[in-house]
Amino acid sequence: MSPPKLQIIIGSTRPGRRGPAIAAWFHALALKHPGFDTELVDLAEVGLPLLDEPHPPQRGRYEHEHSRRWSETVSAADAYVFVVPEYNHSFNAATKNALDYLAREWRGKPVAFVGYGGVAAGARAVQALVPVVTALGMVPLSGAVHIPFVRLSFTEDGRFEPAPGLDDSATGLLDDLLRIAMGRPATPVR
């Protein structure tokens, strides 16, 4: 049996974003993690316009090539991790747009989050995402990785340096995501 496919989705698309460096760190940890076939997906490269399909996504009748490509990409995964910034006490528009494009492709699949921001560490973005992914039929993990004061985690040359303990937090998230993707219960919250 092949390992479940994990897509790590970079939510931010704006110039100067921190998401790619954070996602690269998480992706490197996921590649070392036993059990996943891992792929990095950058919404900036996917390039979805603001939702422009005339039919509801539940029908799966996509008229635009970018929608069909996005459907194929998302359908190929068994689990997801969204790397999302916190903007104005919530998550960003590109992430919401990407989620809204599809319906059946997300259904029944586990999802986890790496949130980043200022003092709230992306927690409000993650909290706002949970009802959205739940409405899509996804299975959100109860825990997330949170990165506070994200600017302080970057070197002058733009490299992300995780704070002590962040690697362990991310590895625990991957462990739980794998358990759920394999149909086993996640570690109980302590």
Rank of each mutant, 00 (worst) to 15 (best):
I8W: 06
A98M: 11
G11M: 02
V139W: 12
A135G: 11
Y80D: 04
D176I: 08
D176S: 15
S142T: 09
L129N: 05
V111C: 01
G11R: 03
G183K: 03
A44M: 05
R61K: 12
Q127K: 03
K32R: 14
W106D: 04
I180Q: 12
V145A: 14
L177F: 04
G108R: 14
D37S: 15
D167W: 12
R61I: 10
V132L: 10
I10F: 05
T187E: 15
Q127V: 00
K96T: 05
V139A: 11
E53T: 01
L173Q: 15
F91H: 09
T95P: 01
A24E: 15
F154S: 02
M182D: 10
W25Y: 14
V189E: 15
F113W: 00
G19Y: 03
V133N: 06
P131W: 08
H66A: 07
Q127S: 04
T13F: 01
L31H: 10
R68L: 11
T73H: 08
D157T: 11
D176M: 12
A94I: 01
I9T: 02
V130C: 01
D100Y: 13
T187L: 11
L129C: 05
H146V: 01
V145M: 12
P164E: 05
P188G: 13
G16F: 00
I147F: 10
V139N: 10
H55V: 08
G60N: 06
L99M: 11
L40F: 15
P148F: 04
Y116L: 03
Y116S: 01
G11Y: 00
R104C: 03
A30Q: 09
P85A: 09
I9F: 02
H66P: 03
